[in-house]
Nucleic acid binder design. Structure first.
Lengths: 229, 229
DNA sequence: CGTAGCCTTGAAGGTGATCAATGTTTGTGG
DNA sequence: CCACAAACATTGATCACCTTCAAGGCTACG
């Protein structure tokens, strides 16, 4: 059994392959290889030549860019079903615009650029689906920009909500990934200490709860209030 | 002569139609109408149903989103050749994600969603070109996020440089649009006063020069220095 | 001639960055 | 199995940058 066949049931459950027949999915993912990443392992490095792209199967990857100074800024959290680097495959000489790093043990279906150019590219419907994912990601970036003037607590609240929404299980208000305070700070463009002070406060008030870096929202109403005040 | 025929020579000079035969361009833009906007006139309003999209012919449009409070945040400056709202045309029930407002007198080729669904959508190469524009825009947003921790002067410097680059005339370091201090502030997520203080300083030092809201960079080296310090 | 939008300057005050020190957990190698 | 390093979490103190508020000048336009 090939890698792709092993993952086919996961693949067809993702929006990008929604309603796509299994046979076509197998064609599109021909030669694909399942990569298992351990915590903090790098999948792609910003600036490298982009010869492969792929789909997150399980776990999560953070997409980050280094700043002129040493530290990193996280631009996106990629969870299962997310496509990584597909946007740039059509470029003549593609370079990864971000570094992708595993957050906890994760799995990724890696596909070659060749298969994109020969199979994916000729399918307009598929490209539009990728565009839709890209569009979602751009909306998140835009929303982030809109919040730029808001004080930090509102921005943290906004981030937590945006990560919960992905999960769409309305009952369970647990973030679907392990998230350190540092990563929150790196995503919001602030300092770890400031994030800690805010979230400690919320913990004391019983608004949120953290267990082994997994954050659970106990009082979503309070979070929404905080975001809009 | 139809609107489209009047603009055909402008259209084929834009990257999106680079190497595309005139006849195909005419087909793709069938039924298009040239809209002339005056200063501060709204082209699209955030939240409205999206029945048309189009291409900026001349002048410029700012794309903004209202914040929970009254004020707006500018997410992008669209200059000639830029496509507006094409990204969302393929969605089943598209809504404009931003408001588009003319900055000074501008012209826009407006195309119906129908022509997108019937003509554009079936052309994979064209969709990939749109994706490339979208990708450029996302990179700008990501770069903005990377600068989030930098002090304001560096962010202003970064904005000026990113707007100059578009123009690619290496000799002429004049921004290709009229830009108020307020708009700079609204784009960077800061206050007008802070932007003014920084730019007044630069003017006094002879680094930049403003004439009727058109900004010229006299000492690009200094700006680059400021950005990386 | 009055209004609207933009630019400018000053003063006061707060949010959050930075620095420093310490505790906690996890993973690694002897 | 223990020692040690590395990554993460926490708390306090200081201070700079930038926001906010207030007031006034300038130009364009009906």
């Amino acid at each position: 059994m090939t890698s792709v066949e092993a993952a086919i049931n996961e693949l067809i459950s993702f929006p990008i392959f929604n309603q796509v027949p299994k046979s076509l999915v197998l064609e599109l993912c021909e030669g694909g290889k399942i990569i298992t990443s351990s915590h903090r392992e790098q999948l792609y490095r910003c600036g490298d030549f982009a010869s492969t792209f792929g789909i997150v199967l399980s776990g999560a990857y953070k997409l980050s860019k280094p700043t002129p100074m040493g530290d990193d800024v996280i631009v996106h959290f990629s969870t299962p079903g997310d496509v990584i680097a597909a946007f740039i495959m059509a470029q003549p000489n593609p370079i990864y615009p971000v570094t992708a790093t595993a957050m906890g043990p994760s799995r990724f279906l890696r596909l070659s650029r060749d298969i994109f150019l020969s199979q994916w590219k000729k399918n307009p419907d598929l490209i539009l689906r990728i565009q839709s994912l890209l569009s979602t990601r751009m909306n998140l970036l835009q929303d982030h920009k809109v919040m730029a003037r808001s004080p930090l607590p509102q921005r943290v609240a906004s981030l937590l909500l945006s990560l919960i929404d992905k999960n769409s299980d309305t009952k369970d208000l647990t973030l679907p990934l392990r998230l350190t305070r540092r990563e929150i700070a790196e995503n919001l463009g602030s300092s770890v200490e400031a994030v800690i002070r805010i979230m400690s406060d919320w913990s004391k008030q019983g608004i949120i709860q953290t267990n082994d870096q997994v954050i659970e929202v106990l009082r979503p109403d309070k979070i929404v209030d905080l975001m809009n005040s």
